[in-house]
Design a protein around this nucleic acid. Sequence first.
DNA 1: GTTATATATGAACAGTTGTTCATAAATAAT
DNA 2: ATTATTTATGAACAACTGTTCATATATAAC
Lengths: 119, 119
Amino acid sequence: MNREFEDRCEVHYIHEDNVREVQTAMLEQETILSLAELFKTMGDATRLKLIFALMKKELCVCDLAAVIGVSESAVSHQLRVLRNQKLVKFRRQGKVMYYTLADEHVRMLFDQGLEHVCE
Amino acid sequence: MNREFEDRCEVHYIHEDNVREVQTAMLEQETILSLAELFKTMGDATRLKLIFALMKKELCVCDLAAVIGVSESAVSHQLRVLRNQKLVKFRRQGKVMYYTLADEHVRMLFDQGLEHVCE
DNA sequence: GTTATATATGAACAGTTGTTCATAAATAAT
DNA sequence: ATTATTTATGAACAACTGTTCATATATAAC
């Protein structure tokens, strides 16, 4: 009769109470997806180097490319990703774009991650 | 004569002092890679749901599959990824494997990320 | 206007990732 | 030992990601 239920009944919940409790608390799919995007954005060596560099100083695309040793095009592409996730902000001065960290959350995430890794 | 220098000279450092300063402070490649792996691991909706679930309760593979609505095989694969990054730990009780968060770092990273996303 | 410079973007390609399905391993019960 | 159950693993495949290269845009200097 009810397909959803038929499917459900084949699942064997070992601790049904726990399952329901956690399911109820579970975050919205949308929230989870945003969070995944955030961590995914930080899950790349090039972007982490960019973030680290911007934790130290405001820098232009040119400088960033020199610091981490990749092409300016690659840097520009990755800066866009960081911008989309609001991890960095920028200002234009003439032809030059200066980037900085968007806020202290980014720094805290970075440092917190570093602590986990360095244990 | 010196190829490395030839290449170097084509790079146009706009703020050479800043570049050198940040370059000096830059983390080891190995450290950056470990950090990238950590964030990459957290950069997936399924794994974030697993982490969230384990933030609430100790759960077995079976329960986790039911909570987040994916196959037990998929859960098992992802739990291995989380285990490799030391984000979860587990104990065996008979046939059943019970998973929990490895430590409070994970929770703090998750919450810190959530704060950034929810702004 | 033209030219030069700094940055951004689009397409393409190799490399990586997450799921599914089939199968294996580990334990428990008979 | 055989069978059932829970979890883990390997192979395979589609989907996604990051770089490169070529090109476009934006500003400045002339």
